[in-house]
């Protein structure tokens, strides 16, 4: 049975979509069959990191969950299209099993899900069927910031939840609430991922400090890096620059995911 991994952050700007794309790619690179649910096709997100625009994506996951289309009509096979791109990182995904599922939880879609009485059971069944159909080992969900009902739904069906935060007071409070909610929703494997840590911090010290305060494992503390800013969503950073400290940290997180039986 495949595992559902939600990547969430309480506030925006934590590098959530970028982290999701990198983690999913690193896991796919290890030979696993991986899917990514891109919850926001209207704004630049995951699909952009894989060089897609809204137009190149067909049907949405919502339509599949409502039984309107088949999963093959929704899934975009990144591994199949990676061979001919000029991005060094993305090209490494050629031949790998990495699927992108556009979905939308905006505006009318949200009310539709709720009106349709979409509950955790139905969502879980839908996701499980989809993973079975494509024989996926891992399904990554790039959730929306905040703690709205859709986010709670996706947390409730997750095997693994990775909460991304910046080491910054504004993120602490909201992340603390999210941690408590995740524990109430019995998430088996909960991790914090600290991103954009300033270089002057002692990263190990920071890790211990945050683990203590949140009583939750920190999968990695990733440095804020100008190199990443320069990359500006052009490529999958950890594949393009595997020796960079940020990439090494991300690989640790990928290894943690892979080690969960």
């Amino acid at each position: 049975m495949g595992k559902i991994i939600s990547i969430h952050s309480f506030r925006g700007g934590t590098g959530k979509s970028n982290s999701t794309a990198n983690l999913a790619s690193l896991v796919a690179l290890k030979g696993k069959r991986v899917g990514i649910v891109d919850t926001d096709i209207q704004s630049p997100g995951i699909h952009v990191l894989f060089g897609l625009d809204e137009k190149s994506m067909g049907h949405t996951l919502n339509e599949y969950l409502r039984g309107e289309v088949s999963i093959e009509q929704v899934a975009f096979n990144i591994g199949e299209h990676a061979g001919d791109v000029d991005m060094e990182g993305r090209r490494k995904l050629a031949g790998k099993a990495l699927y992108l599922f556009p979905s939308s939880i905006k505006g009318t879609e949200i009310s539709r899900i709720l009106k349709d009485g979409y509950d955790a059971n139905k969502l879980n069944e839908g996701m499980q069927d989809m993973m079975k159909a494509l024989n996926l080992d891992y399904l990554f969900i790039d959730t929306h910031p905040g703690l709205n009902e859709e986010t709670l739904l996706s947390i409730s069906i997750s095997d693994i939840l990775i909460l991304i935060m910046r080491p910054d007071n504004q993120d602490f409070q909201g992340t603390a609430v999210t941690v408590d909610i995740a524990k109430l929703l019995l998430v088996d494997h909960l991790y914090l991922l600290v991103n954009k840590a300033l270089s002057r911090y002692d990263l190990n010290h920071l890790k211990a400090e945050i683990e203590g305060v949140f009583d939750t494992s920190v999968a990695a503390v990733l440095p804020l890096t100008e190199d990443m800013v320069e990359n500006a969503s052009g490529d999958i950073f950890s594949l393009a620059f595997p020796n960079h400290p940020w990439s090494k940290g991300m690989m640790q997180v990928a290894d943690t995911i892979l080690s969960i039986g």
Binding site: D119, A120, N121, N124, E149, L152, L153, S156, I157, L184, L185, L186, D188
Partner: peptide, 14 residues
Amino acid sequence: DFFTKLKLETSQIR
């Protein structure tokens, strides 16, 4: 109510 229901469903799923 949403959360109460969600919690119940989650336990079943797990």
